[in-house]
Design a protein around this nucleic acid. Structure first.
Lengths: 172, 172
DNA sequence: GTCTATACCCCGATAGAC
DNA sequence: GTCTATCGGGGTATAGAC
């Protein structure tokens, strides 16, 4: 693990747990066992460090959603939505936590790709015979999002049971 | 409006929109058109200012939930859950936004009262014939919470339509 | 790439006058 | 209750040596 990677790793953990503004570059440097100056050589600014993490986050997000977008049938797409929840890698928890931190404070542009995902859900639900697919897609999106949030914040002890309970409602 | 109230009002807005750590006492004082020292005379510290807002938030929350807790029948309780969403006062939006800011960063004790609310939902859903009332209560809680979030962050344009869509599922 | 030293500003908080 | 003045510390960022 290079020093650059150590910085990113510590910053990800701290930003995800405490929030961007609550974490100083000095404390990141100390925990990563590098000099504070090195952070600025590599990332220009504290914001630049966050931007790098955000890019990593976005590519991870795209990869995560891809199976649902490419499923052959509506039933398969709906099934994969819940697999996505079952298969969240604990190694990535901090990326999703960071996402929830960023989403809160305005001007976060997850909207573009979210719309494509919503459209996909809407299509799958319509194919599956739901009478109000757009409304239902919004709801499903919120349900899955809140479940992911509870998983990565370790607030969902009966994860498997809860996910299967959800799956029964949409992909029986 | 007293100066003390002006400070609280500005602090609420800024904390709710930008997050506690991103807002300085100097900028609050400037916007409220008071001296910075006055903030510390009234609230001891920046944290004390937040604590005052948190107390106001908690009493508002208790008042909001009360009708559901005191409903005579299960059907009425479920019906009131959605009324709660329909009747959110725009004047209070910033209090709920603040709540979502606070919930994110660790050690937030909304858990005690949340459990009573969850138990109440669970009871109402069991009475209404849902086969897995505990799971269903968790889900309903998340659905209502995410809808409230979208409302106060002004991300739910078709509010009434969405709420009635939800209501049909639980209190037909 | 990496460290040390340092600039410089802004932050939270206090003291004291009115 | 309210303001002005001020402090000490910690924040981001840069310069320059190695």
């Amino acid at each position: 693990m290079t020093k650059k990677e150590r910085i990113l790793s510590v910053a990800l953990y701290r930003f995800a747990h405490e929030g961007y503004n609550a974490v100083s570059t000095a404390s990141i440097a100390k925990e990563a066992e590098v000099s504070e100056g090195l952070i600025f050589k590599h990332f220009k600014s504290k914001q630049g460090l966050l931007d790098t993490l955000r890019e990593e986050l976005e590519s991870k997000m795209a990869a995560k959603v891809q199976p649902v977008m490419e499923a052959a049938t509506a039933a398969e797409a709906l099934h994969l939505v819940f697999d996505l929840l079952l298969n969240v890698d604990p190694v990535d928890f901090n990326y999703w936590r960071l996402q929830y931190q960023l989403k809160l404070n305005e001007a976060y542009e997850g909207h573009r790709s979210a719309q494509l995902y919503l459209d996909r859900l809407s299509w799958a639900l319509q194919e599956s015979g739901f009478p109000e697919p757009e409304m239902e897609a919004q709801l499903l999106f919120e349900i899955v999002d809140s479940a992911l949030k509870r998983i990565v914040f370790e607030e969902l002890p009966e994860k498997e049971k809860y996910i299967e309970f959800l799956r029964k409602k949409y992909a029986p």
